[in-house]
Amino acid sequence: MTQDAPLLVIAAGGTGGHMFPAQSLAEVMLARGWRVKLSTDARGARYTGAFPKAVEIDVLPSATFARGGIAAKAMVFPRILGGVAKAIRHFLRDKPAVVVGFGGYPAIPAVAAATLMKLPRMIHEQNGILGKVNQVFAKRVNQVACGTWPTTLPEGVHGLHVGNPVRGAVLEKHAAAYIAPGDYPMEILVIGGSQGARILSDVVPSAVAQLPQSLLSHLRVSQQARPEDLDRVTEFYEAQGIQADVRTFFDDIPKRMSEAQLVISRSGASTVADISVIGRPSILIPFAAAAGDHQTANARGLVEANAAVMIPESQLTAESLSEQVTNILSQPDGALMMARAALSVGKPEAAEELAVLVESLAFPETYPAA
């Protein structure tokens, strides 16, 4: 990669919801001959292990009012201003052709610097409702790309639906053959964000234990759990004689999802994208406290396509979940139809479409209609 290659700066926060689509775009842009830098903060830098080695990690100070006490909140603006100043210095030294923000407060310095310097810039919103940082920049960027459609946008802002980019490891499993439930080994994958979800640890094991023996005798569970829940979930499954692999983090989710007959999950935007690209039946439990109830909006596409069942947290019990799992796993033809329906709403081309948007901002003369 030569220093003459155009530079893309990707600004993203330290959660999988922001980092997975950012990683996907980085992979595609590197393949197109661009140089790529990731702008994040110290927290976000801990989540960059899966990014291609060619991506330079640029750590800038940032902060949020959502954490810490009075002293920490008093330092939010100084830290953000310091991050913006540092980003400007970096951009003057190595000018980006385009800056793309994926949301999260660690994205603020780079996107703010690009705005002040009038550099070509865009944001990508993964959820059906803009996050706080993307709300701030929606009217200050050249393009708003949307992962979930429809996305609620501020008045006067027009978004373009590109879908949520998925990592190369997910694309490799695109439309992987689905083995419908039957009298042979079956897998349920339970995921709730990068470290599981407390409510899934509370409810899923009991729900699985209530399944008919005809299903249980063939079943294996892979479940993410928070560190503090790991032992009790593992011990419950062992006591019930249920085969289960319980971990705080799975680094092979695309593989596990492709081998699963059913996915039980939160409805984070990246997870919904993975499910739709690989094509699997799912039971989605939106995070009730998500800002603007955006996880319900994220789940809507799969639910309306009859690819997923949505259970609100307020209605989630071991009994209600066990009933839905039984319905899906005891109807092979229905499960197969759900898997195909999931594929029908997937956008495996999302990263490529986002890459075209990036290049249209950098080289408008080449993309006159963009």
Rank of each mutant, 00 (worst) to 15 (best):
Q3I: 02
V9C: 07
G16E: 11
G16N: 10
G17P: 12
P21W: 00
A22K: 00
L25K: 07
R32S: 05
W34V: 06
K37F: 06
S39Y: 07
A42K: 15
A50I: 03
D58T: 12
V59R: 14
P61I: 11
G69M: 11
G69E: 07
I70C: 01
A71L: 12
K73Q: 09
K73R: 15
A74L: 15
R79I: 02
V84T: 15
R93Q: 14
D94I: 13
D94P: 14
K95W: 06
P96Q: 12
V99M: 09
A110E: 07
T115Y: 08
M117C: 08
K118R: 15
H124S: 07
E125T: 09
E125W: 08
G128N: 00
N134F: 00
Q135A: 11
Q135H: 11
K139P: 03
Q143I: 08
Q143G: 02
V144Q: 08
A145H: 03
C146E: 08
T152I: 02
G156I: 08
G156P: 06
V157P: 01
V162I: 15
V166F: 03
R167L: 02
A177E: 14
I179F: 00
I179Y: 02
I179T: 06
P181M: 11
D183H: 15
G193H: 12
I199Q: 10
V203R: 13
A207T: 06
Q210K: 13
L216M: 04
Q223A: 07
Q223I: 06
Q224F: 08
Q224S: 15
R226A: 14
P227Q: 12
D229V: 09
D229N: 13
L230C: 10
T234I: 06
A239D: 13
Q243L: 13
D245G: 12
V246Y: 05
T248G: 09
D252Q: 14
I253G: 10
P254Q: 06
K255P: 04
M257T: 02
I264H: 03
I264E: 00
I264G: 06
R266Y: 05
S267C: 05
A273K: 01
D274P: 01
I275C: 03
S276D: 00
F287A: 05
A289P: 00
H294S: 02
A297M: 00
A299N: 06
V303I: 08
V303C: 02
V303Q: 03
A308L: 08
A308Q: 05
L316G: 09
S322T: 07
E323P: 01
M337R: 13
M338D: 09
A339P: 01
A341K: 14
K347P: 00
L361A: 08
F363K: 12
F363H: 13
P364C: 15
E365N: 11
T366I: 13
T366H: 12
Y367V: 09
A370I: 08
